[in-house]
Design a protein around this nucleic acid. Structure first.
Lengths: 152, 152
DNA sequence: CCGGATCCGTTTCGATACTG
DNA sequence: CAGTATCGAAACGGATCCGG
């Protein structure tokens, strides 16, 4: 018997236990597209996620194999989160979400130009993002990344 | 001034107020891909959505312009829900979700063959689905559409 | 400090009963 | 058949506390 305790644990298997949770998707987006890696970076990224909710999602995503938690090589006291391939494979979903948002959401942060790129050559956008990921750099073409936190 | 009362109304504008809600996405999927049109069809579609939650989501999606509510031409007492273009435009997101689910979700209902089709020629899958939509027919290649309720 | 954990008032969910 | 009404159980948000 499976434990069934999560709100988004609806009995249809359509990726919704992750994609159907906004905070999970924000964390995954931050991991995959914006190169965020630490608790503080997620927390102060402008989305206003609460500390307990963030901790819960990080744990849940780790349990479900979407991210790995490892020690920072320089400051070992600070955990560092990295997306797994399972999370990287959500990039097409994230990009289609971005394109839809840029088209229909009046409050969108996604620029039209990016929408066009996704529509006409999504593969190249994916390659660009994954190349940044390989170099451990953030990718942020016009999308506000870190809103002012910066304390290094 | 906008009402801000929804749980998934997080301040980052990335389509998450709809995509981040599992029940909303199920309704949209049922509308766009499976040709479901009535309250009862959504309710008994096997997902186990509660009546009040379904009513709430239908109202919310109508307010946000994702579906229109109209009277059934034959039985005028029965409302009929149809997706708008805004909802139809979520088809790429739905298909990428399906592909991810078919790849990574061990409980998935998405067959491998469909995953391959989405990966290699998503546009043709989209055309197929939209053609069914135009004819007001459901589309369900191997995906269980309305599974008979398991008693309960 | 940073990365959480804990407590608490409020909101939302989910199940069922009920109504037009 | 298409929804409301109700109510206990979760989840959320915010603040605070705590360990390294």
């Amino acid at each position: 018997m499976r434990k069934r305790q999560r709100r988004s644990d609806c009995p249809v298997h359509f990726a919704l236990e992750h994609i159907g949770d906004p905070w999970s998707m924000l964390v995954i987006r931050d991991l995959v597209m914006f190169g965020r890696r630490t608790y503080g970076e997620f927390l102060n990224a402008g989305e206003g996620i609460a500390t307990n909710v963030l901790a819960d999602r990080l744990k849940r995503l780790e349990e479900d194999g979407l991210l790995v938690r490892e020690a920072d090589p320089e400051r070992s006291s600070r955990p560092r989160y990295r997306p797994t391939q399972k999370a990287l494979d959500l990039l097409p979903v994230l990009l289609e979400m971005a394109a839809w948002s840029g088209t229909w959401d009046e409050q969108t942060v996604v620029p039209r130009e990016l929408v066009e790129r996704i529509r006409h050559d999504r593969a190249s956008v994916e390659r660009e993002i994954l190349a940044c990921y390989e170099r451990d750099e953030p990718w942020m073409p016009g999308v506000p990344a870190r809103e002012e936190d910066d304390g290094r």
